[in-house]
């Protein structure tokens, strides 16, 4: 499976993270998105006329929507991540997969504007981002009242992976995460999963390792 990837793209990170969590090996093909704008070049437009990344290629299957890629990885390697235990669960997965598009448009847009100087109405993007974060926060509070720690179930599903990157990187776009305690707990639960990997902007949870005992001069 070949992933056309940009290390700073939260959408690409969704796929790298899903693959890591489900122990799927990806053939990573780095794309010079910034500053080179390689995703708008002829070669990648031939693969994805929309000019976006990630692109996931597996034989003659070419996927250009990250939610579809998450479903593909899960269906192949770890179907429990699909969240199909009940009608409600399946519907919640779809609900949050669609919702993740709003996170990309708002928080992702704010991040590109603030960080990589892409054009955008930063005030409007941040306002939309806050509304989306509030919706996610309320959704997580409701889930906790149902005894569930994740968006669709009491275990993580593709829906969590679809929403996590743009949410956790919201401060990159000038949208603070301080006011969202449920999002903080959810994010922590995801970051503590076995085989979790970070992307730039998400620091290691150093507390997961014990404090090393260091003698001076050993380093």
């Amino acid at each position: 499976m070949k992933l056309y990837d940009y290390i700073l793209s939260p959408s690409c990170y969704k796929i790298r993270l899903m693959a890591a969590l489900t122990c799927v090996k990806l053939d990573i093909h780095p794309v010079d998105f910034h500053p080179g704008a390689e995703h708008k070049g002829a070669e990648l437009l031939a693969l994805n006329p929309a000019g976006s990344i990630p692109i996931l290629e597996d034989d003659d299957l070419v996927l250009t929507e990250s939610s579809a890629m998450l479903v593909y990885l899960a269906a192949k390697a770890a179907p429990e991540w699909l969240g199909r235990a009940s009608a409600e669960e399946a519907a919640r997965v779809q609900q949050w997969l669609s919702f993740s598009g709003r996170l990309t448009a708002s928080l992702g847009g704010a991040r590109l504007t603030e960080m990589l100087l892409r054009p955008g109405d930063i005030g409007a993007l941040q306002t939309q981002g806050v509304l989306a974060l509030r919706e996610l926060e309320a959704g997580l509070v409701e889930q906790s009242l149902r005894g569930m720690r994740f968006l669709a179930a009491n275990r993580p599903t593709v829906a969590d992976i679809a929403c996590f990157p743009y949410v956790v990187l919201a401060p990159d776009g000038g949208v603070p995460l301080d006011p969202y305690p449920a999002i903080r707990l959810w994010s922590r639960a995801l970051r503590g999963l076995d085989h979790f990997i970070e992307m730039p902007g998400i620091h290691r949870l150093h507390e997961l390792k014990p404090e090393p005992h260091i003698e001076p001069g050993e380093a």
Binding site: D178, H203, L205, H206, E207, P210, E211
Partner: peptide, 13 residues
């Protein structure tokens, strides 16, 4: 507040 807690101590990130 961006740091981490190990044991009984708070560490700066």
């Amino acid at each position: 507040s961006h740091g981490f807690v190990r044991g009984e101590a708070l560490s700066c990130i």
